[in-house]
Design a protein around this nucleic acid. Structure first.
Lengths: 226, 226
DNA sequence: ACTATAATTTAGTTGAGGCTAAAAATTTGT
DNA sequence: ACAAATTTTTAGCCTCAACTAAATTATAGT
């Protein structure tokens, strides 16, 4: 067994599998199926089976044939480390390099595989230890622990609720550009002034100024209720 | 032929070969030998031959068997793009993340392979378009052009010469750590007070204080003569 | 010029990580 | 309960980028 720091050496591909298994596993609580992994990773089920065997031998996943797969504690720890790196890089790209929300993902997918503890800790410090990435997803700390932000869709809160805009559900370019055009950005303080019964549109106050937004928009904006 | 931006898609390994050939080629002006490449890259000559054939088919190098190898103009352009990325990341690591100059290389070796034009251009802007990296080596601009700094080895200047320390010839960790320990850093003002005939050692004044350095050190420090 | 040595290339192998096609196990519908 | 459909695995093959061992070409010494 080869150690590199406190974690086994892993290839890029292995890391991508671990990450995918983590994401799939944290939604449904049952074991993750070969087919599901193949679909997300745009590969074939047979290739997934091959890789799962390798990961199983490295004690990163629990695997019994035909029974699906789940992460071991080592696998989970590894997944959280990768996710931490991905999300920290996303913050860096947006805060320091002026990337927009929809441009960060592809580059972060590459940066998340850079191996250097010092690098990621220094980056964390440069960014002032952010707790959430530009899409509002939580960033695990060095030990892998994070708090799920108590966020709600703007469409689901009662009148007079206020909070900070912390993320989007739909992260398509179209939607993000629309938000930009209307001066809605992450971190803006939003207060719901009135909810229109008829079409579900909202009168809101955002950063001091008043505006009206449709129900569709409200269904795709998360706020962190105060 | 697959394009990615304005350059063919290249694997990490291909990029490393191109970079090595560039470095070897810009020193001696003759064609680079298989053995030399193998030694630098810590691989076997036969592996180098394999790779050279691939690079030759992609029109990145000129190759005739038993005759050594040189970069085509496309290859040179590619090499300069990689070197630009490497050196910009080095500046980032030192300036923004407080890495010392002996810690940057290993991480920059990874970061230089990240593919994103926007990323590297934004990084350039964040760093205020630096012209030299932390070791004093010039950073090519977007078009691959750069000016070689007018620098001389400390061992080659006459007595009483003064200038700023602008780089090192040997950038091994050992040497850089040694410099740190002795309080010699990039940007320090150095004046040669006396040259010892016997062993070539120098009495110098650096940032106001006096010290003696061996000829070996003088042979590896560049100064920008005033 | 001709051999000895050094450099380089070829041939064949390996491992990672994909693929297809076919077999086996599981799940589902009646 | 059992045949049909689906999921998963096996078997065998491919490419990239390394390797070893053997063959070939270049270079150097006499």
């Amino acid at each position: 067994m080869y150690f590199c720091g406190n974690v086994y050496f892993m290839t890029r591909s292995e890391e991508n599998y671990i990450k995918t298994i983590f994401h799939l596993g944290s939604k449904g609580s049952r074991d993750v199926s070969t087919n599901a992994i193949a679909e997300i990773m745009e590969t074939k089920p047979s290739s997934v089976t091959d890789m799962i065997k390798r990961l199983s031998e490295k004690d990163l996943v629990n695997y019994k044939r035909y029974q699906g797969v789940s992460l071991t504690s080592l696998g989970t720890k590894t997944a959280l480390a990768i996710i931490r790196k991905h999300r920290l890089w996303e913050v860096f790209l947006v805060e320091k390099l002026d990337f927009s929300w929809d441009e960060v993902h592809e580059v972060a997918e590459q940066l998340e595989h850079i191996k250097s503890d010092k690098l990621i800790d220094s980056l964390d410090r440069l960014l002032a230890y952010p707790k959430f990435d530009p899409h509002g997803d939580p960033i695990p700390d060095k030990n892998g622990s994070f708090k799920e932000r108590d966020r709600k869709l703007l469409s689901e809160v009662p009148v007079h609720t206020a909070g900070l805009c912390v993320g989007v559900k739909d992260s398509s370019t179209t939607f993000l550009k629309f938000l930009d055009k209307n001066g809605i950005a992450l971190g803006n303080r939003i207060k719901v002034l009135e909810i229109e019964e008829f079409d579900g549109s909202l009168n809101i106050e955002i950063e001091g100024r008043k505006m009206q937004i449709s129900n569709v928009i409200a269904c795709n904006l998360y706020i962190n209720v105060e």
